[in-house]
């Protein structure tokens, strides 16, 4: 397991990465990001509409935070779309990091595993540091890792669902089988306890957006997730006690009063 939270050679002290979308207003986004302690934020690109104001304000706020930028390819349905959007992102954001999203189904926004592999291969060859948003499928993740994706971002549940970890077995297996990969659970987390759960499994980090942005108090929820991620990491490092199906008294039995030893 990686002792550091290592994203393509960059060590991050916070294991929480937040998205920048869906907040009630830009000021709350800024406060939530600051209070979370995160060092990286996701963002995207869309067609510029001069008649729509606000884009410049968003960009200025994000720049002022001086966080590492993780642009995504959200909404892409083909390899060409994803590659082009990644290239545009690299030029604007001046980073080789790309959160590769390639949607295979519009109902659950499930990543397309086949196109994901094809796009990842092209982007890696073009010098990108690819962080693929993927399902928790072990073989897919192994193939992505073998291609050169040092960071993998399996889902816990569909984007924006807040359902938490739907398949803990699959995530545990990923951690077990890919001990040297940087594994970040991305998408589907709704509560700090969900984040804590995957960090306890040994995941390297957590990426989320909706759970914070759509909370009644996004700033407080950002702090809650920060604590949960740190707690889960500490618990993983501490090592959990073994489970058993029967009770074991924690208070010593020896010396219990009111008990009489019958003469033999």
């Amino acid at each position: 397991m990686n002792p550091d939270f290592n994203v393509y050679g960059t060590k991050l002290s916070s294991r929480l990465i937040l998205g920048s979308a869906l907040y009630p207003n830009p000021a709350l986004m800024q406060q939530a990001l600051q209070q979370s302690g995160c060092e990286a934020v996701t963002l995207s690109l869309r067609r510029q509409a001069p008649e729509q104001q606000g884009g410049e304000q968003f960009w200025q706020l994000v720049r002022d935070l001086k966080l590492r930028l993780l642009p995504n390819t959200a909404g892409c349905h083909s390899v060409q779309q994803a590659v082009t959007l990644a290239q545009m992102s690299r030029e604007i954001f001046q980073t080789n990091w790309i959160k590769l999203e390639l949607i295979g189904d519009d109902y659950n926004l499930q990543p397309d595993p086949i196109l994901l592999l094809q796009a990842a291969e092209q982007l890696l060859a073009d010098g990108f540091e690819v962080l693929p948003y993927c399902t928790d499928d072990l073989v897919l993740c192994k193939r992505l890792y073998e291609l050169g994706c040092k960071v993998l971002m399996p889902w816990a549940a569909p984007i924006g669902s807040g359902l938490g970890v739907l398949n803990p077995y699959a995530l545990r297996t990923l951690r077990e089988r890919l001990p040297d990969a940087t594994l970040i659970v991305d998408a589907g987390l709704g509560l700090p306890s969900h984040a804590c759960q995957v960090m306890e499994m040994g995941f390297d980090g957590v990426l989320l957006n909706s759970a914070v942005a759509l909370a009644k108090d996004p700033v407080l929820m950002a702090q809650a997730f920060s604590h949960a991620v740190a707690a889960g990491r500490s618990a993983f490092l501490a090592g959990a006690m073994p489970k058993q199906d029967f009770a074991s008294p924690s208070t010593p039995v020896l010396g219990m009063p009111f008990w009489l030893q019958e003469a033999t």
């Binding site: 907040y23 963002l43 884009g55």
Partner: peptide, 10 residues
Amino acid sequence: LDIVSPIAGG
């Protein structure tokens, strides 16, 4: 022709 700029994203 597509001309894009930064926006919020998750």
